[in-house]
Amino acid sequence: MTSVPERSRDAAGATRVVRGGRFRVGGVVRFVFIGVYVAFLLLPLYWMAVTSIKSQDDQLSDPPVWFPSDPTSVNFADALNRFNGWKGLQNSLIIALVTTVLAVALGTTAAYSMARFRTGGKHLAFWFLSQRLMPPIAVIIPIFLLYSRYSEEWFGVTLIDTRIGLILLYTVFALPFTVWMMYAYFRQMPAELEEAALVDGCSRLQALLKIAWPLAAPGIVSAAAFAFIFAWTEFLFAQVLGRSEAVTVPVALAGMITFFQGNLYGQASALTVVSLVPAVLLGILVQRHLVRGLTLGAVQG
């Protein structure tokens, strides 16, 4: 992920991206539309942000308070220290990062093989996709049993309430999208460079590591972003498979806002705002590559 910037420029055709297509939307209409969408996007975010600095008295007030007269930071201290905020952030960050690395490493290699050698053909591709079709409820109890009981009885490892347990599961859930994106990406990437390298005496593995991966860096970045997003936001499995240790941000937040005796909107907003910091950082980090990386197949000239 770190070697992306310079290399990718020539790879996916940065110049094409910048100039873009030529379809013209009328200038005014275009910016009005963007403006309306930004307002639609910002309003809930503003409300979250302002809720995070409201004192409890302003929280449930009628009419609603648009800006508190006495902003407070108590919600932040509360959410982070008292309601599993730090623990959740720590866990979520580790889980999401490791999941991302695993999903990208496994997904990219598999996708490369599927794209270059048509390994498994259509069926393997669909099999990967089908992993995403099952409603969680069908597997959540058996996975719980596997994690809390059988993994210990059969393999002597405890997976329940551990980060590694969630990481493994999230990797599996993130793989379909990673595989598909990278599959499409490798399909549109010309094979000539790798072939030239092979002719020069590179092994296939070297060609993958030294030629294909760097060339595919933009695609990898965007695949990584989506794997991260998935692991960062997943709730149901984290709720069921966590107890006191592997508490993630969504679980901590859900505990605050979705249940009786849990209308801790101030705290929930505070934790949401804090949890957006890595999100924004990541957004800034990848946004340049995100779009470029997603240029998929069939759009060759």
Binding site: F144, S148, R149, E152, I160
Partner: peptide, 13 residues
């Protein structure tokens, strides 16, 4: 739910 699932798993947690 937590209690029932633990009863199924019998992990002693």
């Amino acid at each position: 739910t937590k209690i029932i699932t633990e009863n199924l798993a019998k992990s002693g947690a």
